[in-house]
Computed example of a mutant assay.
Amino acid sequence: MGMDGAEAAQGEEQRGDPPEAPRRRSDETRAAILRAARDRFAADGYERATIRLIAREAGIDPSMVMRYYGNKSGLFAAAVEFDLKMPDVYYIPRRHVGAMLVRHFLSRWEQDETLTALLRVGATNPEGAEEMRRIFRTQLRPLADELSPDAEEAATRSALAASQILGMALCRYVLQLPPAVDMSHEEIVRWLGPTIQRYLTGDAPPPPPDEAG
């Protein structure tokens, strides 16, 4: 190959795709930031968790956190973004939906601490509460729409089911009440499954009697 050909080949290499190493480093940095943010938001709450503390825990300069996420609000939104991975109930007998959902939520909560962090923050911070509402509105509500005997009751049924799921999570993973912590998954399913089942698929309670009557 002549000189011109060698120079052309070298130019092709220089104009090729950028190396993967910087991209990997960027992904690793983001992952470290999000891990540290979840830990700090869960331990300290939204107000007390600071960019400086999160950066220190991630082992990076605070400016890197700002570079990737802009501010604490943006970091929080990214850190608590969560997919409930709701199961497809189409293939599940309707009478088993309550038990299946309880098992599913126990598994999701224990596989990923993001929900616990969000629950801690949501109890005291408006942004955390709104994020929790968004997650359940967009991911649990469609299941209630599908299962509810009356479409007009779906929102109420979804809220009631969420109250049981979040109540157990609060007692078991945040407050760590001994009875709730000590219960096995199957015990929780036996107690909570029928209630979730009734909220999503059961008949609505009758209206109160007319006092005037």
Rank of each mutant, 00 (worst) to 15 (best):
M1R: 02
M1H: 07
M1F: 01
G2V: 01
A8F: 12
A9I: 01
Q14H: 14
R24D: 13
R25N: 12
R25F: 09
S26R: 11
D27C: 12
E28F: 08
T29Y: 06
T29I: 14
R35K: 08
A36D: 03
R38N: 10
D44G: 09
G45F: 06
L53E: 15
A58L: 05
V65M: 01
V65D: 05
R67N: 14
R67I: 06
L75G: 02
F76G: 00
A78Q: 07
D83M: 05
D83A: 09
L84Y: 05
D88M: 00
Y91P: 06
R95E: 15
R95N: 13
R95K: 15
V97A: 03
G98C: 00
G98M: 08
A99I: 03
L101I: 02
R103F: 04
H104Y: 03
L106S: 01
D112F: 08
V121W: 01
P126I: 00
E127N: 08
A129K: 12
E130A: 15
E131A: 15
R137T: 12
L140Y: 08
L140M: 15
R141K: 11
P142Q: 00
E146S: 14
L147N: 01
T156V: 14
S158M: 09
S158Q: 07
S158I: 08
A159L: 14
L160D: 02
A162L: 10
A162N: 04
L166D: 04
A169C: 01
C171E: 15
Y173M: 10
V174S: 00
L175P: 11
L177F: 11
E187N: 03
R190N: 14
L192S: 12
G193L: 07
R198K: 12
Y199H: 13
L200V: 03
A204Q: 03
A204H: 08
A204R: 12
P205I: 03
P206G: 08
P209Y: 05
A212D: 14
